[in-house]
């Protein structure tokens, strides 16, 4: 069963702020989501293990240089990117 502490830890790792009084509800919601996802474990396995759902392998590109984007496009959605960098907001 998922615990309040686990929810709190996930929030810390994701840099999310969670109010103390939200924790119980979130814990319950998350528990429900996990229980729902767990139903897949009850499925009967008749087929071999597969490595990936697409059953594809080895989709590669060769090592050939393509033009990069113009920097103005790369920084288009950025406030304060005038010096050519992405500025980082101070973290709380």
């Amino acid at each position: 069963m998922i615990t309040r502490e686990e929810i709190q830890n996930i929030a810390i790792l994701s840099k999310l702020f969670i109010d103390e009084n939200e924790l119980d509800t979130l814990t319950q919601d998350m528990a429900q989501i996990i229980t729902f996802a767990d139903t897949i474990n009850t499925a009967v396995e008749e087929l071999e293990d597969f490595e990936d759902i697409n059953n594809l392998s080895n989709v590669f590109r060769e090592d050939e240089v393509l033009p990069s984007y113009d920097r103005s496009l790369i920084l288009k959605n950025v406030d304060g990117g005038e010096n050519g960098y992405f500025p980082v907001k101070k973290r709380v």
Partner: peptide, 27 residues
């Protein structure tokens, strides 16, 4: 020492102007 990045065709050249060897995959 590949010529390009691991997931896109941008160059791996060292010492370029900031954010000039980038594409939507890099960012």
């Amino acid at each position: 020492s590949t010529k390009t990045k691991i997931f896109c065709g941008c160059t791996t050249a060292f010492g370029s102007e900031p954010n000039t060897n980038c594409c939507p995959i890099c960012i």
